[in-house]
Nucleic acid binder design. Structure first.
Lengths: 121, 121
DNA sequence: TTATTCGTACGAAAGTTTTCCTACCTTTGG
DNA sequence: CCAAAGGTAGGAAAACTTTCGTACGAATAA
């Protein structure tokens, strides 16, 4: 299923830091993103567990939540959806949009091409 | 302001076909996307006019709606936001995600590199 | 032991987005 | 002229997302 905006923020924390408690996720969100109450984060993570976006280990009193899907898999899925809805499925259109502006340096373009070369082998 | 998902669908129709009536947009959505009532599309487009996402010409009885912003400008904005929230602002991460999978052909990669070369000049 | 702290669960409510019913006006075809 | 078709406006409601107060049990420290 599709994570919402807030759910995605929580997933990012889990992907970055590994299996975590609600307390940890909430603290991280408050540091890195925005003020939010513990009970709000808890609620959201409970909903995510119901939806199957995360799993949770209830063996200890402090439940430990883990992402249900790999970061790459979920992100690729969201990216593909984005490309479909915005660029009619054309990845190269997206790339042009991304680098077509004036604010892309020669160096950055070279870097990208180098990365693409690696893929090519 | 940020278009919502449905609003974006409407903008896409307007960008693709130029200034249009509600009737035309609604028909197009029903053909290309999903079943939706005329009055729903109307309402949405009225809201978009209020928000300033579209302008409308009321001189005729059939109001004609136009996108307020250029397609490229809006899309670049949304794309940048996407890169920020998903890839921590790293465009090359996104590109890797996009082409990193097994399902990218050599030809497609070459095509992309050719396009990047053009930008480089 | 007992008060405090920390955890979960639940429900309500607020905010946002989407949908559509209905009233009412204008245009059009017969 | 009159009925039918097609247009806008507005409000209500449904659906979805987000927030948080509160109850209550478990752990902890004094």
């Amino acid at each position: 299923m599709e994570p919402t905006k807030s759910e995605l923020e929580i997933l990012q924390v889990l992907w970055k830091h590994g299996p975590s408690t609600v307390r940890f996720v909430n603290d991280t969100l408050n540091e890195e993103k925005r003020a939010v109450q513990y009970s709000s984060t808890l609620k959201l993570m409970q909903i995510m567990a119901e939806k199957g976006l995360v799993t949770r280990d209830e063996s200890s009193m402090k439940h430990v939540y883990s992402p249900a899907e790999e970061e790459g898999k979920t992100k690729k899925q969201l990216l593909d959806r984005f490309v479909d809805s915005m660029y009619n499925g054309s990845a190269s259109s997206l790339v042009m949009q991304l680098f077509g502006g004036k604010n892309t340096s020669k160096e950055e373009l070279e870097e990208i091409k180098r990365l693409l070369d690696k893929l090519d082998q």
